[in-house]
Amino acid sequence: MYDILIIDDETVINEAVTKIAKSEGFKIDSCTNAIDGLKKLEKNQYKVTLCDIMMPEMNGFQLLNEVQSEGINTNVIMITGFSTVENAVKSLHMGAIDFIPKPFTFDELISSISRGLEFYNLQERIKNSQIGKDDDTIIYVPCPPKYMKLGNTSWMYMEYEGAAIIGATDLFLRTIESLSSVELMAVDDILIQGSTCSTLQTEDEMPHNIMAPIGGKIVERNEKLLENFSLLEKDPYFEGWLYRIIPADIEYDKKYLTPCSTDRV
């Protein structure tokens, strides 16, 4: 049982990630192409897989597809040097749990990995609760049926035509421990689907970025959050909303969103 598998054709990145992961006490394995990576994934159990997108022979998206169709139990985090929001959105839509643009810092890498590992633990607890154990606690609150979400990170709800509110999912928030602050963008700022719309700081000074589920213009932000960020954890779908925005092209953005009525992990 490994914690992490890193697949990247650049050895320097493999080495750096391996070194950092080991320093944090994670058990890590690595390989330099997706075909070998898939073989490893089929053979061993990895909680988190870090995978580059642009690789020769088989690219990261193809690997992600294989993982999904074969039902391999691992949480894929995409990393790429071609860090466009399109790639980020596509990754989440295809089932990756996170997207880290290259070059990344120690903190960015570790925060994403820790969320991935925590997400794995959550999944295990959900499985256990389904077979009868551990059923006396609420593991997570699924997002309401009329909402839509981008991956498992953020949600959006059309209040009425022309305006939407967006926020972070409970699943995402539960992978973060001990929040210390919330950073919000300003009113009138423009959001692009997949770009970072808010950064949550934890007490260990780790930054956790929330990706915007849809693009548009911010018309209002939840000022209450800045005073009392625990609202976010307490009621992520109602009181803990982040922004009210006027969507730029909701029909286009919707293609990459999943309805919350099918919100099951």
């Binding site: 320097v12 990145i13 750096a16 070194k19 040097g81 466009t84 070059p103 990344f104």
Partner: peptide, 25 residues
């Protein structure tokens, strides 16, 4: 731009991960 970004980002990742790691230690 895409090509340059991709090519430069890989070595930059090396620099940034190692230096930020070193910064922590």
């Amino acid at each position: 731009a895409a090509g340059v970004a991709h090519e430069i980002n890989n070595p930059l990742t090396g620099v940034l991960t190692y230096s930020s790691f070193l910064q922590k230690r």
